[in-house]
Nucleic acid binder design. Structure first.
Lengths: 338, 338
DNA sequence: ATGAAAGCGCTAACAA
DNA sequence: TTGTTAGCGCTTTCAT
């Protein structure tokens, strides 16, 4: 049996569908529909458990009350946590989230944007991969609200919410140096995206500020799509070839976890003479013996800012054509010494 | 500027919108539209970068190519991993995922189902909370494909994919007993849902089979919505009051992590005389010193089965009214000794 | 205070 | 082989 439509309600109530529509949309008062009619219609709506078809409504009004969330990988705890917070806030405003993972593949990212466009999502939240600048620009010219996060795309007038990646590694590196470390390895991923670059630059600058020469032997890039075994091999090599290393700074959370597993494997002890710092906090680091210091990103705050900026745009999108300046929000990471 | 519509394409190409529609939907051959026309239309489609409005299409066809995913909390790694795998598979078949977290609140769960219904999602994947049986039954009578997972709802003819929770704790407990443990504490959550109940029953049965008396002093239920501090306090109490405990079996992943943090806090060492077993694997357990044994759930397999069952129903839903028997899939967990 | 009717963009039955 | 047209369920303008 097909679900009831507004037409069924109208005919049962002996009123026009217009009247029902007004009542549904809270315009009854404004349209001065009589209390009696309102009540009668509402009773019938309840009786039929009628829910307006959102698809039809979307077609008519042009908005879907849906936000497209495009991240690298929803199963990464960083993105999953953000997704959750965003979902919460969006839900309260009547928006739903549709999500997708890009796997850092610009082709897939483009497809996803197309798909979301075809589905008429009202707004986008994107952790951008390099190579989708033009698609995002396109969204912008179509005046569709967009917030990018985690990574910035340089030279674009787009709302963003990022963490000061440069400063994150800067403070971490400085801390290591100040606690006596001289040979600080840097393990990162081969993605030359803004936020990873900046993490490297912060590390480099801290070394420089403290008069330590950057040593490229103890700088390692792990391919993003490296297999577990390859990653392990590469890290083992790093430690074998460079016994002088007295600290390691990992530029991402998952690399640090891999790193800890390798250290465990080769039975290299973490102690006062050999420190580890990870980027992005995780239960693993709290629980590790010894606990691992981290650069902590303010996830909750990020999610909050993202959704605030977006809802704000969504609210104003309708009633103005004036291009406001993009919101550029840079949050500060915290170094957590453990 | 509004995006192009099928009408624009048709008029540019001097053909009717029907022709364009057929070409778009791959029915050109079948409708024996001439090669020349197809080519011309395709060129124009590309030129305009035309993407059919999925909302209009949905209104017309009645399906949205969207699957609603309702879980307890998308930021929980277990659900996040499943979500990711499901997304992948669904995407390949042209389906998108809309997700929502219930926070174990039946009221919210009901609202979410309503919301998804209003949005006309084609199918549901639900990790059910107690109290939504009737909503799910309703979906079933409306012949909307549903798969529930993680937890089973007893006495319902609905597709489900679950892990044999009873057996999971059964083998874990047996293992502990066989390695000489006599006072095995059980820490669980106060949710009396099917899968948690079964985990307790497996534990109880293993004790019984080995002739050990269940001791309720070392059985602890932590409220689902307990604050961090309360949880900590409750666990500390457990260990203080019952120094005879020589092993702890946690019924969930997050409780085990909490537990490890507490043990760290009270400096209680994990060693041959005091073992921990967690439910659901996690990097934390691999990396922990010493590593923690776990009951591992086959996440990938679950996701695969879920989506297989669903796509299967989706494919057959259209061409048959025959009620097939529900797929009831029970996967086996694995005990990983560490 | 309420209703008639157009139209959002698309699909598909029916015509030609 | 291609075109005409009704209609999916709703919102909203214009009438009354």
């Amino acid at each position: 049996m097909k679900p009831a439509s507004i037409k069924d309600i109208a005919s049962k109530a002996n009123v026009s569908i217009t009247t029902v529509s007004f009542i549904l949309n809270g315009k009854a008062e404004q349209m001065r529909i009589s209390k009696a009619v309102i009540e009668k219609v509402n009773t019938i709506i309840k009786e039929f458990d009628f829910k307006p078809n959102q698809v039809a409504r979307s077609l008519r009004t042009g908005n879907t009350q849906t936000i497209g969330l495009i991240v690298e990988d929803i199963s990464n705890p960083f993105f999953a946590s953000i997704a959750r917070k965003i979902e919460d806030k969006a839900y309260k405003k009547g928006y739903k989230i549709s999500y997708s993972s890009t796997e850092n593949d610009p082709v897939k990212a483009k497809e996803l944007i197309e798909m979301f466009k075809a589905r008429q999502v009202d707004a986008y939240i994107i952790a951008p991969v390099p190579g989708i600048e033009s698609e995002i620009k396109q969204l912008l010219t179509e005046r569709i609200p967009v917030v990018i996060f985690d990574r910035n795309l340089p030279d674009m007038e787009v709302n963003y919410v990022v963490v000061d990646n440069f400063n994150g590694t800067y403070i971490a590196t400085k801390h290591l140096i100040d606690s006596g470390k001289k040979n600080i390895a840097f393990v990162t991923v081969d993605l030359h995206v803004d936020q990873i670059n900046n993490r490297f630059l912060g590390y480099e600058k801290a070394l420089q500020d403290r008069g330590i020469q950057f040593n490229k032997d103890i700088y390692t890039e792990i391919p993003f799509d490296s297999t577990d075994d390859n990653t392990t091999a590469q890290l083992m090599l790093l430690f074998e070839k460079n016994p002088e290393i007295d600290a390691v700074l990992f530029s991402t959370n998952y690399l640090a976890i891999k790193g800890l597993l390798v250290l465990k494997l080769i039975k290299k002890e973490i102690n006062d003479d050999f420190s580890i710092v990870a980027y992005d906090d995780h239960d693993v680091f709290k629980l590790h013996t010894p606990p691992i210091s981290v650069v902590d990103q303010p996830i909750e705050e990020m999610a909050e800012k993202i959704i605030d900026v977006l809802l704000n745009e969504l609210a104003s999108a309708s009633n103005t054509l004036i291009k406001k300046e993009a919101s550029k929000i840079i949050l500060q990471p915290k170094f957590i010494k453990r």
